[in-house]
């Protein structure tokens, strides 16, 4: 009977739950050094923005088919990742669940935590064969939560997901930054990431969905607050990231200025939400103001993306000029 527990893993909910989890795992394993915004920037994850037409809370993590979205992010760090995911209702799930349990335990034995869809994403930091359990950090509770091997992957959403990490190759910082800009461009210009569904928009169109959702009034109140909070965090991350890497290309300074402007608008946007009996809500009197500001932010972000494009076009991009044999969609 074996067991493992990685005491140095500490999940803090600040960014997207995937990045929070990744950061906790990689820093504990010595696979990443630096602030969280750098991880969020280099992986391109900070740029991801998705909004459901009714501003449902799922918007924040519905930025695409996870496997396809996370793969380029992890590859850009030079890391090998092993991941499996799917829908728990499929008849082969039980078998994949057993294999996943083995793979996660092996990863923990190597001293590397695993990303796990709770939901949202969290970290598996330990296991104990005697009790047949995993210990999962969810970032909300100080104590890790217990998940039985038999219940691995089961949750109220139809999806299961885990990811572990292997070795890392060194990639030059400038190459990583260039690729992160390209990931940002790609996300900005991809309107729908979960086709054939068109109720969740990505990138530029996500701004439209957000404004129209707020404007229409029939939105999910909690979801709207969550989307705006996540928006504020990610735009701040982008600003911090660009501050650190702006010296690489002259155009980045212009892009940084756009995000500086956006971040300056955030306090006022946040003020459009009020606490009422312990629950934060958007002040309906200030929706018009919020919608206007989001419109300004979209224009600024569009300008920044155009500057990214100027940089991107200076270098060949084999990855995007060669048609892949993966991505775009996951198994049905």
């Amino acid at each position: 009977m074996s067991n493992a527990f990685l005491h140095n893993i500490c999940l803090q909910r600040e960014s997207k739950s995937y990045i929070d989890s990744l950061y906790a795992i990689l820093t504990a394993a010595g696979l990443f050094q630096g602030p969280k915004y750098m991880l969020s920037g280099l992986t391109g994850m900070a740029f991801k923005m998705s909004v459901h037409e009714h501003l449902l809370p799922l918007s924040v993590s519905a930025y695409g088919q996870w496997g396809n979205e996370h793969e380029p992010a992890i590859t850009n760090l030079g890391l090998l990742s092993e991941t499996d995911a799917g829908r728990t209702r499929h008849p082969t799930f039980r078998w994949y669940q057993e294999q996943a349990v083995i793979a996660v335990k092996q990863s923990l034995d190597r001293g590397v935590g695993a990303i796990y869809w709770i939901p949202e994403f969290g970290v598996i930091q330990g296991y104990d064969d005697a009790d047949q359990v995993f210990f999962v950090q969810d970032g909300w509770n100080a104590e890790s939560q217990v998940v039985l091997y038999d219940n691995f992957g089961l949750n109220f959403t139809p999806f299961w997901y885990y990811e572990t990490f292997g070795d890392r190759v060194a990639i030059a910082l400038q190459d990583m930054v260039l690729e992160s800009l390209r990931l940002a461009i790609q996300d900005w210009h991809t309107p729908y990431k979960t086709l054939p569904n068109t109720d969740i928009a990505s990138g530029k169109l996500a701004y439209t969905f957000l404004r129209e959702g707020l404007h229409g009034g029939a939105y999910d109140a909690g979801g709207a607050v969550y989307i705006l909070d996540a928006y504020a965090v990610s735009r701040t991350e982008i600003r911090d990231y660009l501050r650190d890497v702006q010296g690489m290309w002259p155009e980045l300074l212009g892009a940084l200025n756009c995000y500086e402007e956006i971040v300056k608008m955030l306090p006022n946007m946040m003020c459009c939400m009020q606490e009422n009996q312990g629950v934060r809500q958007i002040d309906s009197d200030r929706i018009a103001e919020l919608v206007t500001e989001l419109g300004v932010a979209e224009v600024l972000e569009d300008q920044a993306i155009r500057l990214f494009q100027v940089i991107s076009e200076q270098y060949p991009d084999r990855k995007r000029t060669t048609l892949p044999r993966w991505g775009a969609h996951s198994p049905r």
Binding site: T75, G78, L79, L80, D84, T92, W95, Y96, Q99, G166, D167, R168, V169, I171, D175, R318, K319, T322, P324, R325, W326
Partner: peptide, 16 residues
């Protein structure tokens, strides 16, 4: 049940 992986051989992570 199956496992698979794929990629471009020109990616820096290909050796891994």
């Amino acid at each position: 049940t199956a496992s698979s992986a794929a990629g471009f051989h020109f990616e820096p992570t290909f050796p891994l």
